[in-house]
Write a protein that binds this DNA or RNA. Structure first.
Length: 272
DNA sequence: AGCGGAACCTGTCGGC
DNA sequence: TGCCGACAGGTTCCGC
C-alpha cells in the first residue's frame, strides 16, 4: 500500500495526536505483525513508555520512546492507523490497540496481515532499517549522488528505483509517475542514463514526491490516512492504472507490461 | 549481478 | 447467481 508520500502523510497526522502521550496498555488481537516477539514481550516493551516523536525512514514509521527504545512499523500493503476514544470491541482487521494516557487508543489495523511492528532498544538494532538506502527527500539525495549511485547497474530503471537499498521509499505507483515525468523507459538499464536524463530523473523524483505529499498521498483502493481519510494524489496520476488511455502529452495509448512480477505502466512513445 | 518464482494473507473484481 | 482465477500500493527468500 503506502509508499513514501503515504507514510509521510501518516507521520504528519499521527505526530500531533500521540506525541507526549504515554502507553498505558497494549492489546494484541493478532500477533502476526509482531515477528518473533510474543504478545506479552511486546506489551511489556511498550507499557509505561512515553512517545517523544513520530518519524519516518523510507516506508518505515518510527515512534521514538522515552526513556528508551523505538517502535518501528512497516505498513506493507494494507496497514493503517487510527486514533479514537476507546472502542467497545475490536473490528475485524484490528491487530493492536495502544491505550494512551489521555484515554485515547491508537489502533493498528491491517487487512492482509503483511504489516510489521517491532520494538528495539536502539535504531541500529533494526536490521530492516540498516539496509535502507538514500531517502529521496533528504539533503543527501543530490544529482551527484544519483549519478554515482546509478553507476554500472544493468537493472532496468523501474527495478532500480524500487530497490529500497538504493533509494528508500519508492514503490510501484511513484516509480511509474517519476519515470513518466522524466521521459525515461522503465526498461532502460540504469547504467545507460545520460547526464541530462539523470538530471530529469532527479528533478522528477523530488517533484512527484513533494506534490504527492502536498495531496496527502494516493488512495486507489486501500490507502487511508489516519482515521480513514483518503489522499488526493490519485487525481494527478498520469500513467499508473491508465493502460489504453491516451498519453497526456502525445496521445499514444499508455502501455501496461509485467516487470519483476509487478504491473508497469508507461508511455512507449514519450518514455525511451 | 540479476532475474523469475513463490510465499506471506485477505479482499475484490472480471469473466465465464 | 456463483465459482474461479487474476490481481492488489510491499518485502524476502531461494534457485538458476
Amino acid at each position: 500500500m503506502p509508499e513514501l508520500p503515504e507514510v509521510e502523510t501518516i507521520v504528519r497526522e499521527l505526530r500531533p495526536m500521540v506525541t507526549g502521550r504515554t502507553v498505558v496498555d497494549v492489546a494484541v488481537f493478532r500477533a502476526d505483525a509482531l515477528g518473533s516477539l510474543g504478545p506479552d514481550e511486546f506489551r511489556a516493551a511498550l507499557c509505561g513508555k512515553r512517545i517523544l516523536n513520530v518519524t519516518r525512514r523510507g516506508k518505515f514509521l518510527i515512534f521514538e520512546l522515552s526513556p528508551a527504545g523505538y517502535l518501528i512499523c512497516h505498513l506493507r500493503m494494507t496497514g493503517k492507523f487510527a486514533v479514537t476514544t476507546a472502542p467497545a470491541r475490536p473490528e475485524r482487521h484490528h491487530r493492536v490497540w495502544f491505550h494512551l494516557d489521555d484515554g485515547s487508543v491508537m489502533i493498528f489495523q491491517d487487512m492482509r496481515c503483511f504489516g510489521t511492528l517491532a520494538v528495539v532498544e536502539r535504531l541500529p538494532d533494526a536490521p530492516s532499517l540498516a539496509k535502507l538506502g538514500m531517502d529521496p527527500l533528504s539533503r543527501g539525495f543530490s544529482l551527484k549522488w544519483l549519478a554515482g549511485a546509478l553507476g554500472r547497474s544493468k537493472s532496468p530503471l523501474k527495478h532500480w528505483l524500487m530497490d529500497q537499498t538504493k533509494i528508500a521509499g519508492l514503490g510501484n505507483i511513484y516509480t511509474a509517475e517519476i519515470l513518466f515525468r522524466a521521459g525515461l523507459s522503465p526498461l532502460r538499464p540504469a547504467c545507460q542514463v545520460g547526464d541530462e536524463e539523470t538530471a530529469q530523473l532527479h528533478r522528477a523524483t523530488r517533484e512527484v514526491l513533494r506534490r504527492a505529499i502536498r495531496k496527502n498521498g494516493t488512495t486507489i483502493s486501500d490507502f487511508r490516512r489516519v482515521d480513514e481519510k483518503t489522499g488526493e494524489f490519485q487525481n494527478f496520476l498520469r500513467v499508473y492504472g491508465k493502460e489504453r488511455e491516451p498519453c497526456l502529452s502525445c496521445h499514444t495509448p499508455i502501455a501496461k507490461i509485467r516487470q519483476q512480477q509487478r504491473s508497469t505502466f508507461y508511455c512507449p512513445s514519450c518514455q525511451t
